[in-house]
């Protein structure tokens, strides 16, 4: 464990908490992509499938974190698609999720470290996570704006990815650890946030809301 990974994971937890709090406090999921949240839930379930295959005793932080990620993302989906369904902006959340799921699944079967069910599910979750934010970014580009709290959520989510890149540089340097699939997918994912980072720094940090030109 190094400081980049620690802060990356904490940032990831913060992102999940910010989104849940936003939905819970405002009793609304307006501006939030249900598809992105559904894709993240699929990512966590397929990545941490080992939790369901073996008896889980909560003796280490990692397992607790995995369970938090899975339950929080499933709960977020429950809020969006059931409890606060009336506030869900389904018409604007129009990116086709299958266009992300199918290529991620296909690529996971073709490019993986080992052709084994658990390993392919892990690889699929990595590829899917790389593009899972796209429906959310697409929704913002369609509505032309993002609430400040949604921007904070995206910033925390993007920071988590950027910190993971620093973590990989650190691990390559000090531990000779290289996981090519995770690194390539992680870099792709981080690049997707760059445009948003620019808007966040030029608008949100200065107290303005993100409004895109029509």
């Amino acid at each position: 464990m190094n400081i980049f990974r620690l802060f990356g994971d904490l940032s990831h937890l913060a992102a999940i908490a910010i989104l849940l709090l936003k939905i819970w406090k405002t009793r609304s999921c307006a501006g939030v992509s249900g598809k992105t949240q559904l894709l993240f839930a699929v990512c966590f379930i397929t990545r941490y499938i080992d939790l369901f295959l073996h008896f889980v005793s909560l003796y280490n932080t990692e397992k607790v974190m995995k369970l938090i990620y899975i339950s929080a993302s499933v709960f977020t989906c429950y809020l969006i698609f059931f409890k606060f369904k009336a506030t869900y902006d389904g018409n604007h959340d129009s990116m086709r999720a299958e266009f992300l799921i199918v290529p991620a699944a296909g690529l996971a079967c073709l490019i993986n470290t080992k052709f084994d069910a658990i390993e392919i599910l892990w690889t699929f979750s990595i590829y899917l996570e790389a593009v899972a934010i796209l429906p959310q970014l697409f929704l913002i580009s369609k509505t032309g704006e993002a609430e400040t709290i949604t921007s904070h959520y995206l910033f925390a989510q993007g920071s988590y990815r950027a910190l993971y890149i620093l973590n990989w540089i650190y691990r390559y340097h000090y531990e000779s650890h290289v996981d090519t699939i995770a690194i390539v997918a992680g870099v792709v994912q981080t690049i997707l946030y760059c445009d948003f980072f620019y808007l966040y720094i030029t608008k949100v940090v200065k107290g303005q809301k993100i409004v895109l030109p029509a």
């Binding site: 990974r5 994971d9 990831h12 990692e62 974190m65 995995k66 990620y69 470290t113 080992k114 084994d116 658990i118 390993e119 892990w122 993971y164 973590n167 996981d179 995770a182």
Partner: peptide, 10 residues
Amino acid sequence: DNGQLFHDEL
């Protein structure tokens, strides 16, 4: 090769 690959990141 012990069969199971070990992914230690979350």
